[in-house]
Design a protein around this nucleic acid. Structure first.
Lengths: 194, 194
DNA sequence: TTCATTTCTTAACCTAGATTAAGAACTTTT
DNA sequence: AAAAGTTCTTAATCTAGGTTAAGAAATGAA
């Protein structure tokens, strides 16, 4: 198991001593998830925060009509989990599924709490991570309230240039909040116009 | 200036010594904002996190057609600010306006950083506050993607029972993402049906 | 109380995006 | 390389919610 990526990532926000690094690393559990396998299913209680080292996952809900809605993609170097379920320790509504063969480093809620006790700097680290995440969700909410489907699609392309060509188009539709049919129509219209 | 409310609120998540309480209190700046006055305007750089002790504010953006979209209401005991602008120290898009005569306790970004240094427990406090906020935004995003306007309205009524009768209906519309005309139609239809 | 402003309602008409359906183009499996 | 499953496209039709407009009701100011 290679922790260099996660340690490099943490070093962007806090500095750790060698022994802190070692302690933190000892809490991580490595897991491989093949494409289409689930890291978490709706109805389960989320017990871990997971850091993606290889591949990409998606976190989505299924509405009462069976339609999927993507809350977030989790490419390399992102943390993923069901924050609601993780905090409340109640069953969540999120599914987390690998879109490609994926590798994650998992930190259990218990170990995360121990980590906060032993190395309080991690309070800061996760505060910063979550602040950034919050800003992104706020912006996405505003975008969903104020932009047209066309505009949201174009914004998605510029925000996630690395993902756009590696995932099925229907997943993009489930993220920006339109049907796959309508996104297809949009693209055809846009191509004609440009 | 009365800090009992904010200290009571903080005590829900971390325990402070008397001198820590005193130090924290010394960083707070009291401000009265009359109804319709702004705490922050689009284009400004957000310099403070503000805790509402009396009244209620709304944080909103204005889209390219001049339509307002409400990101959040900030009733008593909520923190409000433009997180994007506060973190990046760049001009933000949020307007924060008092809906009634309001009182806030303001903590400047500089003082917040000092506070993290001097009393690291506050890293934990704000981490927890932001985690909860994140969960709420995630749920709202999912709701906007999967529920009808009718369902979002009913959910708003149960989520914010204390606010619903104190604010103009057009603000509710701007929060759930419909026009005031359509919300009015929805309510009329719903009343007939029940 | 009157005048002015904002908010709410109703109704006719319009449109962005959904639904349904069916064939075409990819992928994956065998 | 054939079969089977996904995904993508196109097109006709439909509908949730938007737009426009105008009057009614509520709120606020003088």
């Amino acid at each position: 198991m290679d922790q260099s990526l996660i340690l490099k990532n943490i070093a962007k926000h806090i500095s750790l001593t060698a022994s802190e690094k070692e302690y933190f690393s000892s809490l991580l559990e490595f897991k491989k998830i093949n494409a289409r396998q689930f890291l978490l299913r709706s109805g389960e209680i989320c017990k871990h925060s997971s850091f993606v080292t290889v591949g990409c996952l998606r976190a989505f809900t299924v509405d009462k009509n069976g339609v999927e809605h993507i809350l977030s993609f989790a490419p390399q170097e992102w943390w993923v989990g069901d924050m609601y379920s993780l905090l409340s320790q109640k069953p969540g509504n999120l599914n987390v599924e690998a879109m490609t063969d994926t590798e994650v480093l998992m930190l259990s809620k218990k170990d995360q709490e121990k980590l906060y006790e032993k190395v309080p700097k991690f309070e800061r680290f996760f505060r910063i991570i979550i602040e950034k995440s919050l800003v992104a969700y706020q912006q996405r909410l505003i975008d969903n309230l104020s932009l047209t489907a066309q505009e949201r699609y174009l914004k998605f392309c510029t925000t996630y240039p690395a993902i756009i060509n590696t995932i099925p188009q229907k997943q993009v539709a489930a993220y920006i909040g339109v049907t796959p049919e309508f996104l297809s129509k949009l693209k055809a219209k846009y191509l004609k116009a440009h």
